[in-house]
Design a binder for these strands. Structure first.
Lengths: 231, 231
DNA sequence: CTTCACCGTTTTGCATACAGATGCCGCTCG
DNA sequence: CGAGCGGCATCTGTATGCAAAACGGTGAAG
């Protein structure tokens, strides 16, 4: 503890709360921290080389975002959800994607449309190569472009938030054989509708593109007995 | 400060963080705290009879909810938004209401449908009486029933969150003459569609029921010079 | 008259200390 | 042998103190 104080005088060490929030939420989203994992304040404080005070603030913020669950006098826990809630998130995601696609079809600038189409075409090779990692990156950018193209900041926030909460539960997305090609084809349908400014078609294509999976047994298995409580 | 410690031994005084979050967010939502108002930690600490630590946590949580804006080394400020962002929230609200109405038309139980219709009919008298306060309460319950009737918890969270953020900007809702009757009639259209399980009609009726108003000049006026900065 | 710089005051950010709550483990008693 | 209980270890919740950053006002220079 004294060491810490001394160190702060020399290097500007210690992380800010914002950085911690980012770091922890990244760990949750990427699956480094699985649903059900306990986040005790002291360990985190040591890990980030700060005192418990900023850690607590970060955890509270994560709690407000829904990434962790906090009960009084108990450690924060990476949020685990019931299958019903998971299903509701996927369904909501489909609706949000549909809204974004619809609005994108109506509002994207010429440049945005062109860029979307270009990127989409350019990544066809990833499908043939079966490059899962790279395709996943392309996929993220594709969807982000849709979200931005809607030109509605609040919708953007909602969809980003939902996507983050959903991320821990769909990590193995492109592992299944043929999923890449199917995804790419569905993207193509969305792109076509947007280029035609066909809002209804874009919305439908985007809605059906979201795989509404409520089976998270793999994740639930690792989370163990927490499962029942988070209802 | 010593006084505080002594007092805590006698009465269980001091508010919990959760209570403070509730209290402050209520003040923001009801308009007791106008957009642009500064929330300094010490004043709040005194007001709630706690130290700055829990106040800071409450403010951080409110920040994560979007009700206050926090910049480094600066007081938290009740969120003010640009007209563009305000517009995006209203538009998002319309989309969310449409989703809820659509899903309600598909999924409400018989009891839920009956209760909705009964409440709606029962409050016709409020329109004739011009009872703005009571109508406002009915209105809130009406919409909440729609949100619940969608049977989608994540959508419920999003719509509740959006409504809370929007609340400070539409307080004078039912003041305009004829607005009550118009609102009631629009509700009627939604109810009818839901009773018929006509999802598309319910969605459209709900969408057009949301008045997309992006003129918040009244609120902005009180917020003063903060207005320009919150972009 | 305006603008910029400097210094004291105020306020935030964080570390630390302490009190209360929770959970665990062994002990005792039935 | 099992169930209930007490005490200890651990962890959260909050108060407090200190350092650093921002704000405000005054004065001097242009």
């Amino acid at each position: 503890m004294v060491k810490q104080a001394r160190r702060r005088e020399i290097i500007r060490a210690g992380t800010t709360v914002e950085q911690m929030v980012r770091a922890i939420s990244d760990m949750i989203v990427t699956g480094a921290l699985l649903p059900g994992a306990k986040l005790d304040e002291v360990s985190l404080a040591v890990r980030f080389d700060v005192s418990r005070t900023p850690v607590r603030e970060a955890l509270r913020e994560l709690g407000a975002m829904g990434l962790v669950v906090r009960e009084p006098n108990r450690s924060a826990v990476v949020t685990n959800v019931t299958e019903a809630y998971l299903h509701s998130m996927f369904e909501a995601m489909a609706e949000l994607e549909a809204i974004c696609a619809k609005l994108s079809a109506e509002r994207m600038t010429v440049d945005e449309r062109r860029a979307l189409e270009l990127m989409h075409r350019g990544s066809m090779r990833l499908v043939h190569a079966g490059a899962q990692e790279e395709y996943s990156a392309y996929n993220t950018e594709f969807h982000t472009r849709l979200y931005r193209g809607a030109h509605n900041d609040h919708v953007f926030e909602m969809v980003t938030w939902t996507r983050a909460r959903l991320a821990p539960f769909r990590r193995a997305q492109f592992r299944l054989p043929g999923r890449l090609a199917k995804s790419y084809e569905e993207h193509g349908r969305i792109v076509t509708a947007i280029m035609r400014a066909d809002a209804a078609a874009a919305g439908q294509a985007a809605y059906s593109h979201v795989e509404i999976v409520s089976d998270a047994s793999a994740v639930f298995a690792t989370a163990g007995k927490r499962r029942a409580r988070d209802a």
